[in-house]
Computed example of a mutant assay.
Amino acid sequence: MQHGQPPYAAPGAGDPQYGHPRYGSAPYGAPAAPGPYGVPGQQPPARGRKKLWIILGIVGGVVLLAVVGALLLVNLVGGATAKAKGLAEDFTQLVIAGDTDTAYDDFLDPALQEKLSKEEFAAGVQSLELDETCKPTYNDFKVSTENGNNAADVAGVISCGSKEVDLAYRFDGNKDMKMINIKLRPKA
């Protein structure tokens, strides 16, 4: 046993000459050995957050583009739906009122006018015997937009007391939608 060494220590343990500090610490006055984060009591070094900000920026940009895209889609489809509903309502009111010339001239597409003359259209509407008691009900709107061209299918019923008339219209166009297909028939 060496002089000054406690009796319970293994030979060479804690002996400064063998490079082992006494009781697991540095000798008095010697600097502490750096730990995994540097000197004990020192804060860990600040990590660069550049990567985090890049990822957050990309995710935020994608979310923003998705929201803007959804709003544009809803606005376009919603606008086309409102326009189609307005066209169907205006056309049907003219038909009910018996103003077939205005309905024909203002709403029918030239291609449909080539297939259906103004006289045939007027005769068909008059055969339905519509009057001011008739009220339209629209129960189906299907609107689509492709390459800036809007299309809308409108279906419903014109109720006139005990008599009902099925209606189905198809409108097509970009800014100025016109009727390209029409069906007005007494309900069976």
Rank of each mutant, 00 (worst) to 15 (best):
V125N: 13
V125C: 11
Q126Y: 08
Q126T: 14
S127D: 15
L128K: 11
E129M: 13
L130F: 09
L130H: 09
L130A: 10
D131P: 11
T133G: 10
T133P: 03
T133S: 15
C134R: 07
C134S: 15
P136S: 09
P136H: 08
T137D: 15
T137R: 12
T137F: 11
Y138A: 11
Y138W: 12
Y138E: 08
N139S: 06
N139V: 00
N139P: 01
N139H: 04
N139M: 00
D140P: 00
F141C: 03
F141P: 05
V143R: 06
S144F: 00
T145W: 00
E146F: 04
E146Q: 13
N147V: 06
G148Q: 09
G148V: 05
G148K: 09
N149W: 02
N149E: 12
N150V: 08
N150S: 14
N150W: 04
A151R: 13
A152V: 10
A152N: 04
D153F: 05
V154C: 10
A155L: 00
A155T: 11
A155S: 10
G156H: 09
G156N: 09
G156F: 11
G156C: 07
V157N: 11
I158S: 05
I158V: 14
I158L: 15
I158W: 03
S159W: 00
S159T: 14
C160I: 01
G161Y: 02
E164W: 01
E164N: 13
V165F: 10
D166I: 03
D166H: 05
D166A: 05
D166G: 00
D166Y: 08
D166S: 07
L167P: 04
A168F: 03
A168M: 04
Y169N: 06
R170E: 03
R170C: 01
F171A: 14
F171P: 05
F171T: 05
D172A: 10
G173L: 07
G173Q: 07
G173C: 04
G173D: 06
N174P: 01
D176T: 13
D176W: 03
M177T: 08
M177W: 10
K178P: 05
M179D: 02
I180D: 11
I180H: 03
N181E: 13
N181L: 03
I182K: 01
I182F: 01
K183P: 00
K183T: 13
K183Y: 05
L184D: 02
L184I: 05
